[in-house]
């Protein structure tokens, strides 16, 4: 089978290319450009002044603190789940795969809602936790839990197909050569999936830092305390403080662009070491 080689467009083809470019320009490029234009509408000084605001700095700090815990936890989970699913045969594997994918089909708002149902003031464990003096909803912990749920499948989804394709041959060979568990994981398995892990962590991190709906439900919107960057964008926007809103938004957009650039680079450079077709 021969795959398609792109040809130089002519005639009708330009119509197709033009339609695609116009569409992408309208739906993707224009909103992206407008973020930066709006952010600099009153000049660079006003733009940078937006980050002097202690609330903005607190939001940036909180976002980093959440991602710093949520991403490694989900990466650890992704590794354990992928090791389990790709290297062993056991009953219930299909069900496990379905459950791992489940958070992808949840509305972000539902991913926040469920935590309120469990830990909120009227939640299952709310009253009990209240007596113990522990608060989860409207605190860092709640934001963390919502973020973890939303970004739950990212690393696992990246690793599972790759490790399944790689099979167990190399690990089995390592066993016959006398390697123990630690040597197998560190010397054989991890180097084989390193780039896919980076890729998954990258996407997981982008989503963790940019999550809005789920976090919005559990945050309580206390400025300087429980507002993450996306929530701070909303608060500023609702205050008609557009320059500051777009300034913070431009940081998030920049993060997205850097993520995409690195992702594209990884896809070019290491396409054979990433799970093929599992782009998301």
């Amino acid at each position: 089978m021969r795959t398609m080689v792109p040809e130089k467009p002519k005639g009708f083809a330009w119509l197709v290319v033009g339609a695609a470019a116009l569409w992408m320009g309208l739906a993707i490029l224009l909103p992206l450009v407008s973020v930066f234009v709006e952010a600099f509408r009153q000049g660079a000084a006003a733009y940078f002044a937006s980050f002097q605001d202690p609330d903005a700095q607190a939001a940036i700090k909180l976002t980093l603190q959440v991602a710093l815990v949520a991403v490694p936890l989900n990466a650890l989970f992704g590794l354990a789940a992928a090791w389990l699913i790709a290297k062993f045969e056991f009953a219930g594997k299909g069900l496990l795969l379905t459950l791992i994918d489940l958070p992808f089909s949840l509305s972000p708002v539902i991913s926040g809602l469920v935590w309120v149902l469990v830990f909120g003031a009227n939640g299952w464990f709310g009253p009990l936790l209240d007596q113990l003096g522990v608060r989860i909803i409207f605190t860092y912990t709640g934001i963390l839990l919502a973020t973890i749920l939303v970004t739950f499948p990212f690393v696992a989804r990246e690793l599972i197909p790759l490790m399944q394709a790689q099979g167990t041959d190399e690990e089995t060979a390592a066993v016959t050569l006398g390697a123990g568990g630690r040597d197998i994981v560190w010397r054989v398995t991890l180097p084989n999936i390193a780039w896919a892990l980076v890729y998954g962590v990258l996407l997981c991190n982008a989503r963790a830092m940019g999550e809005f709906g789920a976090v919005s439900v559990v945050s309580g919107h206390i400025r300087g305390l429980t507002d993450t960057m996306p929530l701070h964008v909303e608060a500023l926007y609702n205050d008609y403080n557009f320059v500051a809103a777009f300034a913070v938004a431009s940081l998030l957009a920049g993060l997205a662009l850097v993520t995409l650039a690195v992702k594209t680079l990884l896809e070019w450079r290491f396409s054979s070491e990433l799970a093929s077709g599992a782009r998301r």
């Binding site: 041959d169 190399e170 089995t172 060979a173 390592a174 010397r187 054989v188 084989n192």
Partner: peptide, 9 residues
């Protein structure tokens, strides 16, 4: 092994 199972990296 039949597939050699060399460590690819």
């Amino acid at each position: 092994f039949q597939s050699y199972a060399l460590f690819r990296h």
